[in-house]
């Protein structure tokens, strides 16, 4: 077990998969000679050359489509969309081609592609570089959606995504590439489905994914130390499909749920999780489940406004206290 950074974990997964299979390629803007905006493909151009590490023009929809077309012949492309905000432009090919081709061909063609992109608000990147779009991807039939919250998941999910015959979208976060964490020394495949209990508790479940898992861990600490409330933290690293059984199990134990995401409130992961709670374990609930989300505004540039738009651990604590009638 070694402690490495999130970007290093991604780079290692790329490197191992490319070394194993000559049909694994990676492509995207600045990923080759420049080494990748977030360094996830650092050193690969030198090692594997321009035919397999492809610096693309800034033509998101078409280079994504090109990767998908190559995957029809058994090529396994890892397609980096530098920022999730640019993935809007590639959604036509991701949704209309990759996600649907298996179904509309009656199982004849499949698109074993991996799409990776960085989303979320970072430091004052403004309205067009701060989007959270997982809510859009998770509603598309035929596309798997995963979102790693630490280097171990980043490494293992990318490895599994490359091997999977289904198209997989990996939702990363701008603020997490330098996060450190333990990654197994040997080869490790993280499951594409399921969820993880990151911290065990008995009084309330804090559901989160990606960066919100970290807000929840901090909130659980505060709740324990200052309020004597034992919070369980569940990491929903798979957004499509969501882990119904994992959600049911935790709520059946704690009887209360707060669902936390950086996404804006209307329509999304959090709404979906609350629906699952209602469908799976309504009679286990001691309080109505609530969600903690970003404000529905185009992300502001100003630092104070930006902070006000995004939730944090204190907001999670406040939501929990309210559930217990202590807010």
């Amino acid at each position: 077990m070694a402690e490495i950074m999130y970007w290093e974990a991604l780079q290692r997964a790329h490197d191992e998969e490319m070394a194993r299979d000559p049909l694994v390629i990676c492509m995207g803007e600045d990923i080759g000679v420049a080494g990748g905006t977030y360094k996830a493909t650092k050193g690969l151009y030198e090692k594997y050359g321009p035919l397999r590490v492809i610096d693309t023009p800034i033509s998101e929809n078409s280079y994504t489509g090109l990767g998908i077309g190559a995957s029809f012949l058994g090529v396994r492309p890892i397609i980096e969309l530098m920022s999730v905000n640019f993935a809007w432009l590639a959604m036509d090919q991701m949704f209309n081609s990759a996600a649907k081709v298996r179904y509309m061909s009656g199982g004849q063609l499949t698109a074993p592609c991996v799409f990776r992109s960085a989303g979320g608000a970072a430091h004052q990147l403004g309205a067009q570089h701060s989007a959270r779009m997982e809510k859009v991807f998770m509603g598309i039939a035929g596309l798997r959606v995963v979102t790693p919250s630490n280097p171990r998941q980043a490494y293992g999910l990318l490895k599994s995504a490359v091997r999977s015959d289904d198209p997989v979208y990996i939702n990363e976060h701008e603020l997490m590439y330098n996060m450190k964490g333990d990654v197994p020394d040997g080869e490790y495949f993280h499951p594409l489905e399921g969820s993880e209990v990151t911290r065990s508790g008995t009084d309330v479940t804090l559901f989160g994914y990606n960066i919100s898992v970290h807000w929840n861990l901090k909130a659980a600490e505060i709740l324990d130390k200052q309020y004597g409330i034992s919070a369980e933290v569940v990491d929903l690293y798979s957004l499509s499909p969501l882990d119904r059984e994992g959600i049911r199990k935790s709520v059946s134990k704690t009887h209360r749920a707060v669902v936390v995401g950086e996404e804006e409130a209307p329509v999304g992961v959090c709404a979906e999780v609350i629906s699952i709670i209602n469908e799976e374990c309504f009679f286990e609930l001691d309080a109505a489940p609530v969600r903690v989300n970003s404000a529905l505004v185009p992300q502001p540039y100003n630092h104070t406004l930006e902070k006000a738009a995004i939730p944090n651990a204190e907001d999670v604590v406040a939501a929990v206290l309210k559930l217990f009638g202590r807010g």
Binding site: G65, L66, I68, A70, L73, V75, Q93, M104
Partner: peptide, 28 residues
Amino acid sequence: VKHRFMGGYALVGGPFPLAAGIAKGIQM
């Protein structure tokens, strides 16, 4: 697919990049 007919697609212009991708697959 057994006759290498890789499909009809309904978004106008959608097959352009897919065709280039198939060519990329051939190249590889």
